[in-house]
Design a binder for these strands. Structure first.
Ligand code: MN
Ligand code: MN
Ligand code: ZN
Ligand code: ZN
Lengths: 178, 178
DNA sequence: GACATACAGAAAATGATTGTTATTTGACAT
DNA sequence: ATGTCAAATAACAATCATTTTCTGTATGTC
């Protein structure tokens, strides 16, 4: 694997292509899979629509709670996991302390993670060329490679400009806006 | 960034180069930083020597406990965090459920993570060429790129050969052997 | 030896997530 | 409309890794 400092393939196309199924489509899918479609599930489906902030379960819960006071965090977790099982979203552990859920499951993409506020941004770059040699693998059967770029989002970079070596503040409550 | 399917630069050199400071060096360092060097700290220093299994705090505790019955898990956590603060080890969240500590902090390296047993292996490959364009970064100030290859270690691959889509078993107690 | 730290140990708090279970509710048939 | 029944829900307890707080004791450092 040889890497030179040029642009990744297919880097420029701002192809926010196949986001996620609509609440209607998800409803249909759930029913076809023998699952029931409840108001809370529909609310969760809606909350995920067009969301590219890689929300946590807690974030989804907060959003849904605003107009559905009774929904429980447990139900949110459960439904998110079901969506993940069905392949409609993916659960990501990006080292931010909480599992983040990504509606974008179709196209191969990677992530920029702010080490200060935990914000996650998509990076549509093709690193599919990444691989390791058999000698390096030494029996390890490799699936996919995940690339995480760690750094500071614009806001955090402006706030904490010249203070190096500081510990990132304990992830304050909900951190999943873009 | 252009990636072709050749070997990564500097992939073959089995350069397990700069591992971690010796217990003596760490002792000196701790003293120079105004910290005290206690037997339990020295025991922890020793436990980390030459360790490339990315142990968890619990693992270090178990090891140290064998010949120091009184050491407490709390002290292990504390000392590991101190070592991390001093930059002598790094704390990794690789999605295995527990924080893993890596004595290897010097050379840029990446990781193979077994999605079945949580085993972590070093991958000494130079992916430093990985970068993103300013247009992609959009204000995000990128630090380093981490590449995680997920797959199955040899043992797990032999055990669970044809069963796809199974959930990894809940991390059983200590999982940090290589 | 004096002094400042570090230690153990207990206990409890934490935060994310999951298990339990009695009750409710969708989906579908009567 | 009503009934049926498995699936879903809400409330609550529990788990797990980790941190925090406290307190009396032990031990490096000078
Ligand atoms: Mn994403
Ligand atoms: Mn490593
Ligand atoms: Zn930020
Ligand atoms: Zn394994």
């Amino acid at each position: 694997m040889m890497c030179t400092n040029e642009e990744p393939q297919a880097a420029n196309q701002p192809e926010r292509v196949p986001v996620m199924k609509s609440p209607e489509e998800l409803t249909e899918l759930f029913r076809s899979m023998g699952r029931k479609v409840t108001p809370q599930r529909q609310r969760i489906f809606r909350a995920l629509q067009g969301e590219d902030s890689h929300p946590s379960a807690e974030w989804v819960y907060q959003v849904a709670s605003t107009d559905m006071e009774t929904i429980s965090l447990k139900t949110v977790y459960q439904t998110l996991h079901e969506l993940a099982e069905l392949g409609e979203i993916q659960a990501l552990d990006l080292g931010t302390g909480t599992t983040r859920f990504d509606p974008n499951v179709e196209i191969s993409h990677h992530h920029l993670v702010c080490r200060s506020c935990g914000k996650v941004r998509d990076l549509f770059a093709d690193f599919s060329g990444l691989s390791i040699s058999a000698s390096q693998a030494e029996g390890f059967v490799v699936g996919k490679a995940e690339v995480v770029f760690r750094g500071l989002c614009q806001e955090c970079h402006e706030k904490l400009p010249t203070v190096p070596g500081l510990r990132p503040p304990p992830n304050s409550s909900i951190n999943s806006q873009t």
